[in-house]
Design a protein around this nucleic acid. Structure first.
Lengths: 235, 235
DNA sequence: GGCCTCGATTGATCCGGATCAAATTCCGGC
DNA sequence: GCCGGAATTTGATCCGGATCAATCGAGGCC
């Protein structure tokens, strides 16, 4: 699933079906590839985007994972999103040209970078890229709004189930085992993401385990009955 | 603040500073105006966008107000956003070409409509319009993500204070009295928007009234000490 | 104006998840 | 393998807001 350092083009990237070029023509993908820069590998905990910084590029996770996070006035951390390979981060910067939250690596991370100036110039000539960027923004917006209603209307277990099912679905799209995976984020990060405390996350996981729906060993998790989890959402 | 039926162009619209053409050149605004259709007046409760419908245009509130809302699996209504004059609705449709929530008039409503096909064609030639649409999407995304963390980390009064202060700010931008206004939405709508119950909204308003921060009479509200409300956000 | 209905307020009780507080497990370094 | 610190689990208690219930008020209609 990961790219070797010899790969240079979006066209041959294993993520091309998921990432920006998903719906671009071969020609458009080739042109876009010319604008993409490869970042070096970052260590776990490294900050790729800093809140308040001028938005100068879009960032795409190539391997590893990251969290989009920040701190509230009172110093409490919040986690807006987790970013898996192929996912674009920093889109909220389009609002006023500045990022409003950090992007932090959760494990060793490689990424691609598309300078904003070049992106804007390419959008002038590539209608597919225009559509794709709009689609990405629309998708992030829809996701954020959906999460917002979920946080306010679904109880702790429902939210955790939703999180696990969603993660599973995203892993599946990347041809990774969807029922047996490692959580790259801490319980605390999950809690901050779902608007819960880490104790509640732990207890809810415990409840799923007692019910025989999941197997948990530290950060490794196996979904035994994904349907039971998904059923929690239907309510 | 409202347009008369004789006004035909975005350039002469009282909302042009707030609406889509905010940062467009005079020439670009003129061209965009040619693509904008005026909708007829809708009654309170009328549905301008239906969840699941194909996205065929962007809609802008011209006068009146609306709510973006839908129902969860369990039948509970949720309210994603309230839309004031000059605000664009339906952006989440860019995700996959379909709307995911309704847009419902909260009072007699007039609107503008920009057919998607024409918008896309114009974005090809008008760089300012491209930037503006990206800015709008970024802004909505940022707003949705901010609301999401707020719902999960701020208590009931803080959220209501935030809502009132935000509303006040948006009214001010429209040259409407920012401290003395009518809420076009019910307590229930506010509650659904903030992830609370209507009883809690009512009680929190009562608390603000007792503190001498606001004056409330039915849907009319006067902010006596906006700073005290804003201070709740600082936590 | 007076009625009628829906929306809003106020009150009493309950509960899910937060908070505070150990105990336990995991993992990196030696 | 052993050790130390951090992450996680588990336990006990508490509280904000939900829920259930009743009253009050406002605007619409005749």
């Amino acid at each position: 699933m990961e790219l070797t350092s010899t790969e240079l083009s979006c066209g041959s990237c294993a993520l091309s079906r998921i990432c920006l070029p998903a719906n671009l023509s071969a020609r458009e993908t080739r042109i876009l590839a010319g604008a993409v820069e490869r970042g070096r590998e970052l260590q776990s905990g490294a900050r790729l985007i800093r809140a308040g910084a001028r938005m100068d590029a879009l960032y795409v996770v190539r391997s590893g994972s990251a969290k989009s996070c920040g701190v509230m006035n009172d110093g409490e951390e919040y986690v807006r999103a987790f970013n898996l390979p192929g996912e674009v981060a920093g889109l909220e910067g389009f609002a006023d040209g500045h990022h409003t939250c950090d992007l932090v690596a959760l494990e060793p991370l490689r990424y691609c970078r598309i300078p904003l100036g070049r992106l804007e110039r390419l959008m002038e000539t590539l209608p597919g890229l225009r559509r794709e960027v709009l689609r990405l923004l629309g998708q992030s917006l829809e996701e954020a709004q959906r999460m917002r209603t979920e946080v306010s209307m679904v109880d702790a277990r429902g939210r955790l189930a939703s999180f696990l099912v969603d993660l599973s679905r995203r892993l599946e799209r990347r041809n990774l085992p969807p029922t047996h995976f490692r959580l790259s984020m801490s319980r605390r990060d999950i809690a901050r993401h779902l608007g819960l405390t880490l104790e509640t996350v732990s207890r809810s996981l415990g409840a799923f385990r007692s019910a025989g729906w999941v197997e948990v060993r530290a950060r490794y998790i196996k979904l035994l009955q994904p349907k039971a989890l998904a059923a929690l959402l239907a309510h």
